[in-house]
Design a protein around this nucleic acid. Structure first.
Lengths: 305, 305
DNA sequence: AAAATAGATAATATCTTTCTATTGAGTAGT
DNA sequence: ACTACTCAATAGAAAGATATTATCTATTTT
């Protein structure tokens, strides 16, 4: 346990500066005896005399006092730095922000989002990590992430959710597939087709639930956690897929052409949301980022519609 | 005024280290609710949340908390450094000590004194300044010197005096002077001789007082503040001098031979003393130096006698 | 010798910190 | 699904630290 308090040091510095307890007390806005007591206590605690008392002529630092006062000034300055760092973290839109993003959301939105935010708030530094839903939520709880971008599915109660966009799921087909001639495709038409499932949580649950809601049990032919692999398999004509995220363009990595068709039924949408912990108090930076995300997705949404 | 206390930071660091208020409280030797209160207050004062609370599973630092805890650790370390510096200044025989010495005392004793002390306490750093009596006493009062070596003459009451040695004053003559044939010289024999006075305070007062105590008014032919100049003038046969300090050897800077003779009367001795302010509390280093001086002069004294 | 200056002390009030005991939210075990 | 356990938060009381005003003492200035 440290032998002194920062306040005592501040007082001692003020005394040194003014050369008098009375003047220093006035500047500090406290009574002279309070200062006298504080100084005496500090000297006692440190076990040395900081000031020489001159009756009726104020005080001057002792040789040891002079040395320690220099150190004290450093320490107080350090404290002020600390304080600045802490208020920055809460009040000002600057500082570090660590965002987690669901795998399939990150590449589609994060680049523009990050670039836009950095432009608007140059003093902020965003860090982005991708991860599975579980990882993201654990990361929030363990303090790894400030905020997390994910699909609003099976949200635990301790998360504070801000919905950003509701995306229609769509059917992905090989461009040459018979069903691709339709404008809209019914899930019932797909019941017997081989289903290539994007196998990550919570997407997996979500897509199977779409079929289940229509009383259909889909024929899952492949399951892969990689979006691009799923697209590639569809491109090779091995089946169809259901997806929410829309990568730019309708070609696979290996050049096959794909067809994207809406679902004719009225199904549950895929809701992209920004999540924080309910138990985590918002800082200025955090809420600014949240607002930025909301308006960012509103712009995209209206633009695409 | 700083928004936080060092204690709060120490507590916060302990919490981070143990991941739990209860455990941290135990290690700190305080009750858990005290820690809880301290943390809440710190968070409120800094305006941000440092820890995420996990019911029944302790706490983990929030992202901002993590950043600030690092800063806090630095600050606390800085505080510990400061504390070490301060205890060093009072308890341990190391650190800086500034000594003032009267002009004529310094060259005769200081070199051996300093060298010996440094050898005994290698971690100490002595600084020596020469000066006139007035300067030395002012220097003590203003905090310039920790201690001062001087002649104990007309000591103000606010100085704490430690006598180190009582030296017999002596008569200094040109080696060819008629009086130099005597073993001892009476002040009365010198009454009509030209007196070359070492003109610094308090020496001046002291030497004139020696004559006055015998009812003699000396014939002052020269007065100089420089010891070597006085010796030189005596060497040229311009008169005699009275001195206390004994430089090694009996030749002047310009090679003249001098004669040193005791005074036959029983006169006031020249007392070398170490002085500090009564109002300045002793540190370990200071009292160690004082003891060292006492034994140093005792050794010289017994050796010379 | 009197007035002014400046720190120390005394007695008291207020604010902080800490304590014990209890509550409440959430997890884990059967 | 109930029960037991874990751990932080709250409430209220006691102790400690800091503040205040009024007074005192030593010293310098006029």
């Amino acid at each position: 346990m440290l032998k002194f308090t920062l306040r005592q040091l501040e007082y001692a510095l003020a005394i040194a500066e003014h050369g008098s307890l009375a003047k220093a007390a006035q500047h500090l806005g406290i009574a002279q005896p309070s200062l006298s007591a504080s100084l005496q206590k500090l000297e006692e605690q440190l076990g040395l005399q900081l000031f020489i008392r001159h009756h009726a002529q104020g005080v001057t630092p002792s040789p040891q006092g002079l040395r320690l006062l220099n150190e004290a000034r450093n320490l107080i300055d350090h404290g002020l730095d600390f304080e600045r760092a802490s208020t920055d973290a809460s009040d000002v839109v600057e500082g570090d922000l660590t965002i987690g993003s669901f795998h399939t959301i990150a590449p589609a939105y994060a680049p523009k989002l990050i670039a836009g935010f950095q432009r608007a708030h140059p003093k902020s530094r965003l860090k982005l990590e991708e991860g599975a839903q579980e990882h993201l939520i654990d990361g929030l709880r363990s303090g790894r992430y400030d905020q997390v971008l994910l699909y609003k599915l099976d949200m635990p109660g301790d998360l504070k959710i801000t919905e950003l966009a509701a995306l229609e799921p769509y059917v992905l087909l090989n461009a040459g597939h018979a069903l691709s001639r339709k404008r809209k495709i019914s899930l019932h038409d797909l019941a017997l087709e081989p289903f290539i499932l994007l196998d990550v949580l919570p997407s997996r649950t979500y897509f199977t639930r779409l079929f289940v809601s229509q009383g259909i049990t889909p024929r899952i032919s492949f399951a892969s956690p990689s979006l691009e692999l799923v697209r590639g398999l569809v491109g090779q004509g091995l089946g169809f897929s259901l997806l929410v995220t829309r990568p730019f363009g309708d070609h696979t990595y290996d050049g096959e052409k794909l067809a994207i068709r809406p679902i004719s039924e009225d199904v549950e949408k895929g809701v992209i949301a920004l999540a924080t912990l309910h138990s985590l108090r918002q800082t200025r930076l955090i809420s600014t980022f949240e607002e930025f995300c909301v308006s960012f997705f509103r712009k995209i949404h209206s633009g695409k519609k």
